[in-house]
Amino acid sequence: MTTSGPILSLVGLTRRFGEIAAVDDIDLEILDGEFFTIVGPSGSGKSTLIRILAGLERVDSGAVLLRGRAITDVPANKRPTAMVFQSLALFNHKTVGENIEFAPKMRGVDPAARRARALELMDLVRLPEAYYARPVTRCSGGERQRVALARALASDPEILFFDEPLSAIDYRLRKMLEVELKDLHRETGKTFIYITHSLEEAMVMSDRIGIMRAGRLVQIGPPLEIYQQPRSRFVAEFMGEVNVLRASEFGVAGEGWLVVRPEQLRPLAPGEAADVVFEARIVNDYLLGSRKQFHARADERMLIGEIAVAAASVPGPGEPVRLGFDLGDAVRVAE
């Protein structure tokens, strides 16, 4: 990853639909060569945001700067960016080759050079050369993903946008394509801006992640930081299943919440102490490969814990258990 200042700056970006601000006063700097992922639930405005950056959606106020130059009003076809759409938006009346060569053709590159570039890109995204003359309608889901990717790369963009392109792909193929995308990012050195509702997907690929909620970026940081130090209940809960406890109930001064990850809530051996202890009863347990997750009830409270299968035995459903965590492991969030 090369980091030499921001390639893209968003300043007070706002886009309203009626009363609702889909994008609400967003400030953000994206570094050159970075893999930046915007994660948010559906309706958080992330698609609108990326469409604004691509030039497919207008803004109500604010500015988009590319290397310090305002491009807010530059139409999509004049921006040095390319998008991989959620629907992929392949040109179904064209062949794989014609799809990939679309951008060079629009720029008037001669056919021989276009073809050479297309074959080069097909090799890069691991599409066999024989696919060149094949109609895209005869390609499988994964192959179509690769065509869309090669087509976007063929315009030689400074920034590539991805609008949830993997959301409709089955799990195994998605995992494979995630890794390939990360490799591709490293190989091309281009700036990738990726949108997804899956934090898991974001974690695998990103240099930095921005969590979006109701048109705002509520936290920005490297994946590990977001995982370990969520700044709000929303971020913590978005990261996966966590225990959120009111801080004041556990002798912690002030307002706010304690976020306790499942792996930090451990079954206690008889006589073992912890800062906070629950007398609970196991409700259910699930095997997650090498780890086991369990749900337990302590009075009216539902708790979720996780433990390595090899490490210790957890009582089965219906049996009592002592669970505990240390306050030093919990993350304190204000809201």
């Binding site: 497919l56 139409p75 076809n77 004049k78 998008m83 938006a89 040109f91 951008a103």
Partner: peptide
């Protein structure tokens, strides 16, 4: 499809 028109624009088509 509208998305194909957008994709063409995005790829530099006038």
């Amino acid at each position: 499809p509208q998305d194909q028109i957008e994709a063409a624009c995005d790829l530099g088509a006038r």
